[in-house]
């Protein structure tokens, strides 16, 4: 019980720390916006990938639908971006529910492959359906209305919008960390057959998780579209983006509240630091780190940290239980 509110306090502390970012790194606002957006989207990915254990490599599709919905509604119908964002969230959760309904009968590598296939098909549609999406030339968000006089293309405004989005994503996974729904997801991840014996319907639970993950990812995608202001299928619908979100969550620590955020800070920060050395090859760091994490710290940075703490504070916890069966 107390643990739960300690986590909530930590979320507050993390968000407060982030609010200082524009003052500390005024010249690195672009990086800041990308960090909070990717932290939020990786957290959203983690609802399905980490908490429910359903590794998706197709989340770029959801980012893309979110971004395209906002942009197209704005460009073609003059609908303000906040409605576009909500419409994108609604649309992606419906798409994800249908997508999940089709692919969740597949387990293991087959599920992963199917997410890639669906996302790739969607990318090809976006490239070819030129009348709707502008095809490979992409879309350009030239102007947007100014809610409360705020310029949505101002990096500081974008940063705080992104931070609000990250805050919501963190609150959602905080809820997962103690609620019935969250435990149902973890049960499915740990052992689907066993979960069924506990009264959990795996398919409907996974579909709900996918829809929730999708809606949040789309919200991030909408903000990302505003940040980019010009985007095309190779940016927001590419499998590379799907892989990036998954690796951020995994390297930070899948299925933990703060893992994806830590992953985003570490990976995007490092990629930025080394950009001058590696130019376009900045994903090299992702590759090296995921190999190291998989090999040596399967629970990611967060898990590795916990193991370290435990080693330092007390001996290994593997003590056999001596059951007596009496009431103590």
């Amino acid at each position: 019980m107390r643990e739960r509110f300690k986590t909530l306090a930590w979320i507050g502390a993390v968000l407060v720390a982030f609010t200082l970012y524009p003052w500390i790194f005024p010249t690195k606002l672009n990086l800041g916006v990308v960090i909070v957006l990717f932290a939020g989207m990786a957290t959203a990915w983690d609802i399905l990938g980490g908490w429910a254990g359903q590794l998706s490599l197709g989340h770029a599709a959801l980012v893309g639908i979110g971004g395209y919905t906002l942009a197209l509604l704005s460009l073609r119908a003059g609908i303000p971006p906040w409605w576009g964002l909500l419409a994108g969230m609604a649309l992606t959760s419906v798409v994800a529910a249908m997508w999940g309904w089709i692919v969740f009968r597949l387990r293991g590598p087959y599920f992963v492959l199917s997410t890639i296939a669906v996302a790739e098909i969607l990318r090809l549609v976006a490239i070819n359906w030129k009348n709707l999406t502008g095809g490979a030339e992409g879309l350009f968000l030239r102007e947007l209305p100014r809610p409360f006089g705020l310029d949505l293309f101002d990096r500081t405004v974008e940063f705080y919008l992104g931070l609000a989005f990250l805050g919501i994503a963190l609150l959602v996974v905080w809820w997962l960390s103690w609620s019935r729904f969250g435990y149902s997801l973890q049960a499915i991840r740990e052992d689907q057959d066993s979960a069924m014996a506990m009264g959990i319907n795996p398919t409907s639970t996974k579909i709900l998780a996918f829809a929730l993950s999708a809606a949040l990812t789309a919200a991030g995608g909408s903000l990302y579209a505003i940040y980019l202001s010009f985007f095309e299928p190779h940016i927001v619908l590419d499998i590379g983006l799907s892989v990036e979100l998954a690796l951020i969550a995994y390297i930070g620590g899948a299925g933990t509240v703060f893992g994806p955020t830590i992953g985003a800070v570490v990976l995007l920060g490092a990629a930025d630091l080394f950009r001058n050395y590696f130019q376009q090859a900045n994903l090299l760091i992702y590759g090296i780190l995921i190999i190291l994490v998989v090999r040596f710290a399967p629970e990611g940075i967060v898990g590795g940290w916990h193991v370290l703490l435990r080693r330092l504070t007390r001996p290994a916890p593997v003590v056999p239980v001596e059951v007596r069966g009496e009431r103590p």
């Binding site: 590794l55 490599l57 590598p109 992963v112 892989v243 998954a246 690796l247 995994y250 590696f278 130019q279 376009q280 090859a281 900045n282 994903l283 090299l284 992702y286 590759g287 090296i288 780190l289 995921i290 190999i291 994490v293 998989v294 090999r295 399967p298």
Partner: peptide, 19 residues
């Protein structure tokens, strides 16, 4: 785990080629 591992190996190869 093996999926993530091979994804990592692939990223290292393609980025080394890029480099």
């Amino acid at each position: 785990v093996s999926i993530l591992m091979t994804v990592g190996v692939g990223l290292v190869i393609s980025n080394l080629l890029l480099f």
